[in-house]
Measured scan of single mutants.
Amino acid sequence: GKELVLALYDYQEKSPREVTMKKGDILTLLNSTNKDWWKVEVKATANDKTYERQGFVPAAYVKKL
């Protein structure tokens, strides 16, 4: 199945390749080969529509579930 990670801290994206997350968010882990930056998929809701974004977050800010 898919691997999930838990956001340990809030993170505000600093570039278009990154994604914003809030502490407590559960994210889908896409790639953890880089030890510093993990690629995740974030589900977000805006205007009653759910959309998914993929991007990088600092590996130290998340932990595998």
Rank of each mutant, 00 (worst) to 15 (best):
S32G: 10
V40T: 00
T20A: 06
L30A: 02
K63Q: 13
K22Y: 09
V40D: 00
T28H: 09
S15D: 09
R53T: 06
N34H: 11
V40H: 00
Y9P: 01
A44Q: 11
K39I: 13
N34M: 08
L27N: 01
D25G: 03
K63P: 03
V19S: 02
K63V: 15
N47D: 13
P58C: 07
V42Y: 09
E41R: 09
Q12H: 12
T45I: 13
F56T: 03
K35H: 10
S32Y: 06
T50M: 10
K14G: 07
L29A: 01
F56P: 00
Y11W: 09
A44G: 12
G55W: 03
T33C: 15
K23M: 07
W38S: 02
V62G: 01
N31G: 06
S15V: 04
E52W: 15
E3C: 15
L30M: 06
W37A: 02
Y51S: 10
K22E: 05
G55A: 03
V57W: 02
R17A: 10
I26C: 07
V5C: 13
Q12F: 14
T33L: 10
V57E: 01
V19H: 01
V57N: 01
P16W: 08
V62K: 01
G24V: 02
E52V: 15
A7Y: 02
R17E: 12
T33Y: 10
E13A: 15
F56R: 02
P16S: 11
M21Q: 01
V62D: 03
K64N: 07
T50W: 09
T45M: 13
E3V: 14
K35Q: 09
L8R: 05
T50F: 09
S32P: 05
M21D: 00
K22D: 03
K63N: 06
L29V: 05
V5P: 01
L4N: 05
V42A: 14
R53H: 06
S32A: 13
L27Q: 01
P16V: 09
L8E: 03
A7N: 01
S15F: 06
K22C: 11
E52M: 15
G55M: 05
S15M: 07
K49M: 14
Y51T: 12
V40F: 01
A59P: 05
K64L: 14
L4Y: 15
V40W: 00
G1V: 14
Q12M: 11
K14H: 08
R17C: 15
N34A: 07
Y61M: 14
L65Y: 07
V42D: 02
T33D: 15
T28G: 08
Q12S: 11
T20M: 04
L27P: 01
E18L: 05
N34I: 05
D10I: 01
A7I: 02
K2F: 14
A46K: 13
D36P: 02
T28D: 05
K35C: 09
V40K: 00
Q54N: 08
Q12Y: 14
Q54Y: 07
I26L: 08
P58R: 03
T50S: 11
V57D: 03
A46R: 13
T33A: 13
D25F: 03
L6R: 07
K14I: 08
Y9K: 13
Y9N: 08
L29F: 02
V42P: 06
G55V: 04
L6K: 08
A46H: 14
W38G: 00
E41V: 12
A44S: 13
G24C: 11
W38Q: 00
K49I: 15
L6G: 02
E18W: 02
S15E: 07
K64A: 07
F56S: 02
G24P: 00
E52G: 13
P58E: 02
W38L: 04
D36A: 09
A59G: 04
P16H: 10
E52A: 15
M21S: 00
T28F: 10
L6F: 07
L30H: 04
S15W: 05
M21K: 00
Q54D: 05
K35P: 14
V40E: 02
V40L: 03
T33F: 10
P58L: 05
W38T: 03
A46C: 15
F56Q: 03
E13C: 12
V5G: 10
E18P: 03
N47A: 11
T33R: 11
N34C: 10
M21F: 09
K49V: 14
L65F: 08
W38I: 04
V19A: 06
V42K: 15
D36V: 14
W37I: 02
Y9D: 07
K23V: 06
I26N: 01
L4Q: 10
D36M: 10
K43W: 12
N31A: 07
K14L: 08
N31T: 08
V5R: 01
L8D: 00
G55L: 05
G55N: 01
L6V: 14
E13T: 07
G24N: 06
L29M: 04
L4W: 12
T50L: 11
N34W: 05
T50Q: 12
L6P: 00
K43T: 14
A46M: 14
E3L: 12
S32K: 07
S15N: 12
K49N: 11
V57T: 02
D10E: 04
E13Y: 04
E52L: 15
V5A: 09
T20H: 04
S32T: 08
V42N: 07
K35R: 12
Y51F: 12
L4V: 07
A59K: 05
L65A: 04
G24L: 02
L30G: 00
A46Q: 13
A59Q: 04
Y51C: 11
D25R: 01
N47M: 10
A7Q: 01
K2N: 10
V62Q: 05
W37C: 05
K14E: 07
V5K: 00
K64F: 09
G24H: 04
T20C: 06
T45C: 14
E3M: 12
K14V: 07
T45H: 11
V42Q: 15
P16F: 07
Y9I: 08
W37G: 01
Q12E: 13
L4H: 09
D36C: 14
I26A: 02
V40I: 07
T20L: 01
G24E: 02
K2A: 11
A7H: 01
E41W: 06
Y61K: 07
A44L: 15
D48Q: 09
K39T: 07
T20F: 04
V42E: 03
A59L: 04
K63G: 07
M21T: 05
R17Y: 13
L30I: 13
E13M: 11
V62Y: 01
E41Q: 11
K64Y: 10
V19Y: 02
N47F: 12
V42H: 15
A60V: 08
E41P: 00
N34Y: 06
A46I: 15
G1R: 13
S32M: 09
R17I: 12
Q54P: 04
G1T: 12
D36H: 14
P58H: 02
I26V: 12
K39F: 15
A60H: 13
E3P: 12
R53L: 07
F56Y: 14
V19R: 01
Y9A: 11
G24S: 02
